[in-house]
Design a protein around this nucleic acid. Structure first.
Lengths: 325, 325
DNA sequence: TTGTAAGCGTTATCAG
DNA sequence: CTGATAACGCTTACAA
């Protein structure tokens, strides 16, 4: 199987390899009509399929870009990825996505692997724990765009949301509705998105003249969140409103509320940072902070494309606004 | 950037390319301890990274496999893909997934593209409209596994669910609960999954001695489904139960019911073929027909892996049972 | 307008 | 134990 090469086609058509190559690359300018036809027939007859690997080796470009998402379980990641893929499709690139699973080791493994595979550039949702590695890439001038999370002290293109401000607004809204006991649940504060959201919460509470009750702040990974939430909702003075740091936290919160028999919108109000596709359909009275995922993805792809094509410009940070729904 | 090659390492270490190659491929058997160290240092110093493209060209294998899903919007597809990816990860393969978007043209494009990229094998959720193409691949002995949908007259490994039987059981359950007006909503009956589910419905109705009311059978693509559903629920004699052909149909049904102010489980009962992750969390009284997606994915990957490694055996069809939840 | 030949960065074969 | 040397399948000057 899979053995017919350009040389075979050339032989069959009675021309040379280079001529076939010309043909394949649509350099018809100087090609005789009959040669063209002979080649066409030969290709058809032999069922020839070009070998991109060989071509890539020569051209030093693979027309592939890598996307490394921190965790594919977030709907936001898949939305952004989809937008990137769309952009790539329209620009003769192929995007291949890898899931770092919030694990810096895996992230490193994928970065190395993709670079070994010679992908032309990388869009990364960084775990934030591989600064040395990031730095090397940047220094070497390798095309990279960071998405979602900021990394300190790195001169690189990045695409983020106004995490602090939008969280702030959401909490303000709670306050305006008369809530005083406002809880905040989030995964470990190890990346910029989470710390910024937390800062937004703190700021809003402070501005409202409200003390933050430490019992109302849950910082835990997903597996451990359930038990902490249970404690929270078992408190004498239960919170009347809660902010869920992202979609996965949200799921835990909803599960826990259901188990406790608490009704969302009635016993407790809920804001979640991120879009939850299905939730919009059922009548759950939840406020969503929605990031413009596809615009962000498109922008990221654009910036990467520019870098791949050697457009030189100073790295910038693009902050997209998110909106409450 | 990215220019240091094996030759550079060889020069720096004062050895030949072949020796470096040995080193990289862990052929230490006959290698001197000092050469080993020199190479190690040289690699470190130069920041050398091997070029997989060149290696692939030589070895005629890329350690990549392609997954072409009919439509990535189905949760089932992503579950299966994830299982395949897991398997691949454990077997030094990289899976790259493409979305045919239910479009045979795109499917063909992706098959051609992936083969041009020399992926070692393909797992396909076939659109079913490219039989000629499928046949060619099989005939050439190219490693392929089909998932989810059957394709007629093709000697190929395939992984499917017992669509007919499980739909049948679901409808029987409706009947047992006393339902008589049972509707069936599905996308165009162009692929085996849908026709089989429909047959399951027909059979169950027949066995129960119930006439099928043509008004109760909705066959439409997703964009057109909304209006047809509206008609259905506006009928004088509304159905009391409805079967949704898959998750996307389900979403349309739920939307429509909400708009009509009908309560699921109260005004109408609902079965859906497929898993809906979020729906399980909220208290929606829906029955799900759940396919063992990850087992199916793993099996598919296994079969592909065997073929890639030239294990010769007769193609088989594997039918997995799904269960009502 | 088409052919020749030299790479691209590896691996594989076979001497030394 | 290590090193030449020839592929792998394609592109691209340059020559004809």
């Amino acid at each position: 199987m899979e053995k017919v090469t350009m040389a075979d086609v050339a032989k069959a058509a009675g021309v040379s390899k280079s001529t076939v190559s010309q043909y394949l690359n649509n350099r018809f300018e100087y090609m005789g009509e009959k040669t063209k036809q002979k080649i066409e027939e030969a290709i058809e007859a032999l069922g020839y399929q070009p070998n991109y690997i060989a071509r890539s080796l020569k051209q030093k470009r693979t027309s592939m870009v890598g996307i490394i998402v921190a965790n594919i379980m977030h709907y936001f990641s898949t939305e952004v990825s989809r937008a990137i893929e769309d952009y790539c499709n329209h620009h003769d690139l192929h995007a291949i996505v890898c899931n770092a699973d919030d694990d810096p080791e895996k992230e490193k493994k994928y970065i190395d692997m993709l670079r070994a595979k010679q992908v032309d550039g990388l869009i990364i949702f960084p775990t934030g724990q591989n600064n040395q590695l990031y730095e090397n890439m940047i220094r070497q001038g390798y095309p990279v765009v960071f998405v979602d999370r900021k990394v300190q002290n790195l001169s690189v293109f990045s695409i983020v949301t106004d995490n602090r401000e939008s969280t702030n607004r959401a909490i303000q809204q709670f306050v305006a509705k008369g809530h005083r006991r406002i809880a905040f649940a989030v995964q470990p504060l190890k990346v910029s998105t989470r710390t910024e959201r937390f800062e937004g919460y703190q700021q809003a509470m402070k501005d409202a003249g409200l003390e933050i009750n430490p019992d109302y702040v849950i910082e835990s990974d997903i597996p451990g969140m359930k038990s902490k939430l249970e404690e929270l909702f078992s408190l004498e003075e239960r919170p009347t409103a809660i902010f869920a740091g992202n979609d996965r936290v949200f799921l835990e919160v909803v599960r826990c509320l259901r188990d406790k028999g608490l009704k969302i919108g009635q016993d407790i109000e809920l804001v979640v940072f991120d879009n939850i596709p299905f939730a919009q359909v059922v009548e759950t009275p939840v406020t969503f902070i929605i990031q413009p995922a596809s615009e962000m993805g498109t922008k990221a792809a654009e910036l990467l494309f520019e870098q791949i094509n050697k457009v030189d410009r100073e790295p910038e940070e693009f902050v997209f606004p998110s909106k409450l729904v």
